[in-house]
């Protein structure tokens, strides 16, 4: 399972990298969103072992093993942050388009020696 997920994340990273290298703002933003999906899955596999126990919620009187709770806490933080990043980037793209009339990053280059 871990190997499968890792390969999946590898593919996601490849796609994300390619999208980030393109010229369209929206594609770049999509790329970052996909990159964060990949990162979340990745962190998940780095814990104690997938599906190695039950849901990390204690139940009175039951001694059980749990899956690793730490990656979950990290990912929860990360999900919210990546949402904020996506929102900021989208709005930035929107405003840039409004002001400059283009969503092409190549055309958005600053002037040299300003």
């Amino acid at each position: 399972m871990e190997t499968l997920i890792t390969i999946l994340t590898g593919i996601l990273v490849t796609v994300a990298t390619y999208l980030i290298l393109t010229r369209s703002v929206l594609k770049v933003i999509l790329g970052t969103a996909i990159l964060s999906h990949a990162a979340h899955l990745m962190i998940m596999t780095m814990g104690k072992g997938l599906k190695s126990g039950s849901v990390p919620v204690l139940v009175d009187g039951q001694e059980t093993t749990f899956v690793d709770p730490l990656p979950q806490a990290l990912i929860l933080t990360s999900i919210v942050i990546s949402f904020a990043v996506t929102a900021i980037l989208l709005v930035l793209a929107y405003r840039t388009y409004r002001e400059t009339g283009t969503d092409n990053l190549y055309e958005l280059r600053g002037n040299k020696h300003e």
């Binding site: 989208l90 709005v91 929107y94």
Partner: peptide, 13 residues
Amino acid sequence: VVVGVVVTIILSI
């Protein structure tokens, strides 16, 4: 914070 920020983002757009 979560409520405020999410609604602010959506509303402003």
